[in-house]
Structure formats: C-alpha cells, structure tokens
Design a protein around this nucleic acid. Structure first.
Lengths: 343, 343
DNA sequence: CTGTTAGCGCTTTCAG
DNA sequence: CTGAAAGCGCTAACAG
C-alpha cells in the first residue's frame, strides 16, 4: 500500500493540504515547513498518485496511440517520434494495435476513452470516417497520420504522397525508363490512390501516356506478398521499372525478381516508399522515397498539445525526398530486354 | 465534459448508487430498472471513467512496458505478444523506451509507479539489480524479459541462450566447420555471456579447443555496426563460420563481408540469433536461432497476472530452435580459403 | 502561512 | 430492492 499525503501529514503534524502545497511548491507556504515536509515525503518513499491527480484535474497527461500493426517498420518510426515528444512533455502513451480490424479499432478507441486519454493518435486507419459518429461523445482531439477524414475533432499529419511519388517517377524517367509500372496497396486505398496520382501526374508532365496494364494493386495478406504478386502480374506488360507503394512491397518484388532470375537493377529498376531501415540491408539496397517519420510522429504530438492548449491546429503536410540507392539504373538497351527470358 | 453516473441518475430519477449497480449488473437491483437505466446510459453516451474506478478499486488494469529502444525488431515481437495478451485480459499498456539510458529507465519506471500500473515488464534492461532499491517502495511485480536479477518482486521470462547457441555451433560443426567464431554484444553483457557459454560448451562437447582469437565483442553504437567491426576484427584469425549475438549483428557481418568481397556462405557461414523477419529478406537469407518472441511476451503478461492474482510465479525459460536458411554451408576445401584474398 | 471543507467519479457498506 | 453516507488520493477555494 503506497504512502499518501495523509500519511505524510500525520508524520509531519500538519494537514494534508499543507503537504499538498509543499509538494507542489506552489501556494503560500513557509519555506522551512515546505522543506521539512518534502524531506519527510522522500524518507517515507512517497510517490504521488497520478490517478487521484487526474480525477481532480480532469486531465490524465496520457496519449492513446492506435496502429494497425506494430510489426510495420513505418509505424514503429512514427511511434518512436510520438513517444519521444510525449516523454518530453511529461505525457505517457498507451499503444494498441487494431490488427486491421475496424471493430477492434473502435474497441481500442473506446478503451482509451474510458481511460480518459487527453488525445488519440491514429496511424493508417482504414475506417476514418467511422470516427465521426463517435466524436460527439468522445470529445477529445484525434490526430490522424497519413489518413484524412472529416470531423470537428479530427486533425491530420501526413507526408506528401503525390509529390513523393512524382519524385520517384521523375528519377526513373531521368534514367531513361519509358515503361514504368506502379504497384499499389489494396489494403490502404486512400494513400495508394494518392500515390497513384503522383505517378500519373509525373508521367503526364512528361507527356507520356498511361498504360493501365502497368498499374496494379494486388490483394494480399502482407505487403511483401503484394509485391511478389504485383511483379508476377506485371511481367507480361514488360515494365523496365516499378514504383512500389512502399518499401516492403518493393522488397516483395525484389525477392520475386530474384526467384525469376530477373536482375535488379540491370533488368528492372525498383523504387520503394517510406525509406525504412531495411532498404539498406537488402541487396541491392533499395532506392526509396523518404518520409520524415519521426518528425511526423512528433508533429502529431505537437498538434495534440496545441489543441489541448486551445490553440488552433491545421492539417500538416510534410514533403518527401528521394534517396537513391542501388535498385535503380538506366534500363537495358531497347530490344535486349525480356523479363520472361532473363539474360 | 463527459456524462457521469450522476447525470444518468438525475435523468432516471434514481440515486447514482442505483445507476452504478445497474451498470455493473451486480448487486441487488430489479431487472426492469436496471434495463431502463442502461438504456438511458447508452442514450446519453455514457462512458465509465476508468480513472475514478481505479481510484476506488486500487487497480488500474494497466501495464507498463519498458524497452531499450523500440527500433529493435526483437523488442517489437516481444511487445506484440505483450499487447495481445494484455488486450485479451482487458489491460491497457504503456510503452516507453529508455534509449539505453539507465537514468531514463528509472525515470520511466517512476512514471509508471505514479500512474499506478499494476505491473511492469522490462526487456533488455542493463541495470537489472538497480531496481532492487526501488522495489521497497514500488511494490509491484516486475517481470524481466531475457534479463535476470535478484529481488522479491522480480520475475523473469527468458529464452535458453546457452542451448540456442549450442544449436548454432553444432549445426556448423555438422557442416564440417572447425574455425567457428563468436561475435558477442558489448551492450548486453549478460545475455552475450550466456551465448558465449553455449558456444564454448558446444565446442567443448565436440572436444574442440577454444581459440580466443575467434571470440570478440566489439563496442559499437548499433548491432549492425558491431557485426561489421566484428568481422573486420576476426578476419586475421580466418574463421570459416561466425555465430553472431543476434540477427542484426549477423546482418552487419553480412554487409561487411559483401564489401570485402567475401562470398556467403561459400567462403564464410553466418548464423544469427532471434529469427527476426529480416532474416528472410537479406541475401542470402540468414540461418538463425529462433526465439519464441511473441510467446515470451505473452508469458510475461501471464506471469504478471498470476502474481496479481496472488499465485506464485517462477522463472520461465523457453527453448530455442534452429532455422536453417541460406547463410550456412559446408566450408570451402582446406587450403583454398583465405578471406584476405577472396576467390 | 495553515487548516477546514468540498468535490473530482465511482464503489461499497449500511440502513431503510 | 433502493438510497444515504463514506471514502479512494488529491487539489482548490475559502476562511482563519
């Protein structure tokens, strides 16, 4: 049973109010007794109860973070930024995964509500608008990362998918590629669509037609698998380069390419998205569109704090930049290349 | 401002006590009024305050998890197991990283104490025994993962480092290797030492001498870097195989080997530890000692729950098994191999 | 400068 | 079966 301010009060022969004041350092109190009380508190091994404090202050200094799955490296970096920023502000953070299950996602948010978190941060939600109905009751700021939605309490932090993908495509065009494919994500229709748009716009700006055969978005349980399937599906269309929804998808394509005896980047260039650590460990290292993940996590906390302080907070959009590694190169000379008959 | 049971009481023309009873479903109360009250509660959008409940029940149904860094894939899997198990039990979990900083680790534990978490789970702590002094005040079960320490409130869940490393060494011996090296971790002296022991014992059982030149534990900021340095340091001793502290270390060695033009597994076999997902994405895929990470996370929660229920909980040790992939093979014929002069 | 009183939202005796 | 009262640990008026 932990020591309470009452225990201290008794030991110090004062009222528990005085103890409270001494411990907070605020309020009129003589420096001497304050010091004496603090001394006693330490001796007795007192640790204040955040629970009790929360009950009166009506704030828990607590954040709830919902992610689809913590196994996603992108999500980890985001969370890392969130946790750091939260720690600096004296906040603690609950982490729960929804496992792609909208029901569980709502359940998690409900739990957070019960625990009276001061704000909720959601990454890669698939429900988005579902929150709407919820918010009338749960009047707490919710900031969405890389996922937009409408709502009074909804704010977002995102990276510029369109611009990022344009970077990737322009890089490939610059290398001389003309048959550039896009592998999207069926699991994340919104961001996938934005990235597809970036892809389309970059081609358009280069006055290149869009070959629908070169655009796929396979259904698959994992991104790796989606990448594998994507590559297989694309082979008949003979792309010389692939822009993948994200790095894991690109790695899936990479693994499948190896299986098929397709050399990367000699016969096929590959660009990922996110710039996760893994890009440096695969072979060849993966060219990727960098998102400032930690910064986005921090920004999400910043948004939340601003809102809690009554300040307005708009939607934040972070620019991406390209990191060129070994998976992209000029296409092999015209006529030489046929993925179905690797050199 | 959220709805309280008082609000409901008023709306239902009963006392707040009755509302409480109706909502809990326990205690003598007429089925009709109970139903009526629950109805009203839903209409009013009531969500119980876990804060208030905790204050009276003296339990928060909350777990605190401390990790060194969330960027470690091993840690992620552990946490994943923890979160799943916690969710099933109706617990929420705080996650904080210590960033290898003992002071911050203590600060985090202190925060958890303030928040009155019911139990704490720590992975990869470097301080361990430091907790001792703390526990007199913070009388809450602490379960350590892969890290042992003494103490009344301390329990542990671990995988069998010794047995796991033996598996790795025996595999290599079976392939015909005679010069097997070990790259430990300077950052985690305890588990590193246990794995070194497994290495030594396996060699001993095969009546092989231990060449101290083949045992290193480089100081490095990251495991990847440690792996790189380890390989460099080992080259003069001409190992034909390396057992690495963990998978990231093995990948570091793999990358450095590639830089040096050393073919894996032809000129050098490599075994990792942990069996993280990444092992499947590098080339060649990494042979690794598998730890049941999710299960260990779940077990840690199980330990905590048992303790909270007043049941005794011992220390748990999980066996490992070997997963053979492409990074291990028979050594090249005697005399042919010289890492300094790659073929 | 310090103590008394009240109350945060909820559960739990104890009467009625 | 229901209500009144007390209290979980703490803070915040408001008096003294």
């Amino acid at each position: 049973v932990p020591v309470t301010i009452k225990d201290i009060a008794e030991a110090a022969n004062v009222s528990h109010t005085t103890v409270s004041r001494a411990l907070q350092g605020r309020g009129r109190i003589s420096a001497t007794t304050a010091k004496r009380i603090r001394q006693i508190a330490v001796e007795m091994g007192y640790t204040p109860s955040a629970i009790a404090q929360s009950l009166v202050s009506q704030r828990t200094r607590t954040l709830g973070v919902v992610v689809t799955t913590i196994a996603d490296p992108f999500v980890i970096s985001i969370f890392s930024g969130i946790e750091d920023a939260a720690h600096e502000t004296g906040y603690s953070v609950f982490l729960s995964s929804s496992h792609q299950d909208p029901e569980r996602e709502m359940a998690v948010v409900e739990t957070f509500h019960q625990r009276r978190v001061d704000a909720v941060i959601v990454t890669a939600s698939r429900v988005g608008s579902l929150y709407g109905a919820y918010l009338d009751r749960f009047q707490v700021p919710i900031v969405l990362i890389n996922n937009q939605a409408e709502g009074e309490y909804l704010y977002s932090v995102a990276s510029n998918d369109v611009q990022g993908t344009q970077l990737a495509v322009k890089h490939l065009l610059g290398l001389g590629h003309r048959r550039i494919a896009f592998v999207g994500s069926a699991e994340r229709p919104f961001s996938s669509e934005r990235r597809r748009q970036g892809y389309a716009q970059a081609l358009h700006q280069a006055s290149m037609p869009i070959d629908e055969e070169l655009v796929v978005a396979p259904e698959a349980p994992t991104d790796i698998e989606a990448g594998r399937l994507g590559l297989i599906e694309l082979i008949p269309a003979r792309p010389t380069a692939i822009v993948a929804y994200n790095d894991m998808t690109a790695v899936g394509a990479l693994l499948e390419a190896r299986r098929q005896g397709l050399a990367i980047p000699d016969q096929l260039s590959l660009v990922g998205f996110d710039d996760i650590e893994l890009t440096q460990y695969v072979f060849p290292p993966l060219t990727s569109v960098h998102q400032p993940k930690e910064a986005m996590g921090k920004a999400a906390v910043g948004q939340a704090m601003a809102l809690l302080a009554g300040q307005p907070a708009g939607d934040l959009l972070f620019p991406c930049h390209l990191v060129v590694r070994g998976s992209t190169a000029a296409p092999s000379p015209v006529g030489t290349y046929d993925p179905r008959q690797p050199a």
